[in-house]
Design a protein around this nucleic acid. Structure first.
Lengths: 210, 210, 210, 210
DNA sequence: AATGAATGAGTGTTCATTCAT
DNA sequence: AATGAATGAACACTCATTCAT
């Protein structure tokens, strides 16, 4: 019985944490870590400031938790949409598509990611790199498979894997920057990130295949 | 005579400004805008805090000036090393090389650039985009020339130009992130950004050429 | 029930504001706006500096609030002690007496009033003039009544009302100045403002009556 | 010869001091002591900040010197226009007229006077009170003469003298305040201080005479 | 568990004053 | 004598964090 109660309690705690994270993410994304006030998050949630401190040790922990959750969700999306695929070029195309789609739907996370990187390098390293390494290894494996099966040209697999990953990241960011500019312009048709998928896939596949 | 004096004074002011910018850039780069204290910059320079305020209206202006100066220098480097080249694939290779070399020598500027982008969107837009647009147009022209002369495959020139620029930016950043990680490790051979030049050039040229 | 809670809270806020105003008035009066430190007010109250900022937006707002409260209290005192009286010469005497008595009991307010006037002309105008005009009109009415009923000599009612009001203000201030000198002397019998009542009343009534 | 040189030098120093005082007075009057910047005075004079410090020890000394000079000028004006007169009522009228005329022509000094009083009580006492006492004694003498010769009613000479002086001061200030309000209004005919002379003289003479 | 009033360390900025030129 | 660049003490104000209720 006690265990049941315990569980119920834990569930509640988790739900509460998630609510807080959900409220915090867009605010952190919009204002950045330093300019985000705990008060604002509390107000948006209609709870007292103290409540947030009951669930998160301090502002930094909350920020890092927002980041961590984002990483986890991203990881799950890739696990579901890309990992099962085995055909090398198809996998490349799927990865590109998933990547852009994910961030298209989670724009705030882009901002969070970049901020964590520049404000909390240590944490970024610890949390992000673990999934990142896994993800780089998967690209390498895919490239190797493609080379072995003759679909891809011969290449320096490690550096190419890095370059591919970097290309995606770069497109993401430059799109995001462009996006901000357009927003302030407010007169240009807003292009979706997904629209870029083709150009990037083309460039990569052309660059990779014989 | 007065004009001579005036000139000498202006020179001194400019020199002083540059000294301050030079001291401020690595500190802003290391700690970020919010966590950088004006006091620290002043101490590093062995001047009083007031001296900084004599040359820059406030902390933000100083930060933006650091950014502006970096942009100008970058622009000059490109103007000198890339703009004169006309052969399309050679130009691509030169651009990639210059880009990486420049940031390899100006790591702090990478950080500054990203911070301006996320803290002061308006200023980033105003200052950075003007050179950025020029630079995108040049890539497009080069691509078109390559396609026309038959060296490059047929392509959507605008999107490809964006992708190329994004690739460079992405490689830059992911290298930079990696670099930070390595620094904290301090046990791995530190790879130079320039080393990536080949992999990226390869990927791009393969991706672009028929 | 919520309304009850709300009320209790508002009461507490008001009480707190009043405590702060009460602590701030003598300090502002003694040191003047510019030389008063928020820290000192906070220390006098045995509260943190932040507490003051919780109740007042900034130093200026606190100062103006001190002034506003003083104006209100003064207004109430007149409303109670002078407005009910109708007989012209009696009303003059009552006004003089109330005026001096009030400021005798609220010496700090004299100082505050003068400072607001010279530091924040706009606010002085807005806050003070509204009660001041009302008060001038009342003097004018009283003079007119006195003239009509034949107790007062014929006169330029508007200018005389101004002069009377100015006389009171002048006596107040010159007494106040004298008072300060005496305080530093500390060897002379300190005369009370109220002591002047008679001389002024005499002068005015002689000046007004036929 | 040396003495001649010495004199010439002293003259220059005095002239310089006067220039500085002349530039400082309106600025102190407009912005108040605390909000006046030494820089602004120096700029208005087209001299370096250091020059001001060569002639005045510090900001406060400069301010006090402005005040002192004003007091001296005022004193001279009275000495010339009022002291020679002997007939009691005529002297009252002349004093009122001179007082208002003087301040009408030296509005900045009103402001300076009030500020010194509230910021530097000690100095105000030392500098102002000496002339003030002299001036009160003269009023008392005049009243006594008037009473003795039967032109004035019997009265408490000391208190009445204070009241008269206070009345003038009060009219001055209330006019000044009113003046400021009108200035911001900018739609009302601006009345001159001298215009009030009559009303005040009437009130006083009526109040004093049998 | 939730609250939000209280706190006070921390920091950007100002400006009187100094002093080398 | 004159300058104005440099200085740094001083202060208003913010906001993460605590804790009594």
């Amino acid at each position: 019985m006690d265990a049941v109660k315990e569980n119920r309690k834990n569930d509640l705690v988790l739900r509460r944490k998630e609510q807080i994270l959900a409220a915090a993410m867009p605010i952190f994304a919009k204002y950045g870590f330093a300019r985000t006030k705990i008060d604002q998050i509390a107000n948006d949630l209609n709870v007292g400031k103290g409540t947030i401190y009951r669930y998160f040790k301090d502002k930094k922990s909350l920020f890092i938790a927002v980041f961590e959750q984002g990483c986890m969700e991203m990881h799950q999306t890739f696990a579901k949409n890309v990992h099962p695929i085995t055909d090398p070029p198809v996998k490349v195309a799927a990865a590109v598509k998933t990547y852009f789609q994910y961030f298209d739907n989670n724009r705030d996370f882009i901002e969070i990611m970049m901020q964590v990187r520049s404000e909390f390098k240590e944490e970024h390293r610890r949390i992000f790199m673990q999934s990142y390494s896994d993800y780089i290894v998967r690209i390498q494996d895919n490239l190797r498979n493609g080379v072995k099966s003759g679909v891809f040209r011969d290449m320096d697999v490690e550096k190419t894997a890095d370059t591919i990953s970097a290309t995606l990241q770069g497109v993401l960011q430059s799109f995001y920057v462009r996006k901000i500019e357009d927003d302030s312009d407010q007169n240009e048709k807003t292009e979706s990130l997904t629209d870029r998928t083709d150009a990037v896939t083309q460039l990569l596949l052309h660059g990779l295949t014989k």
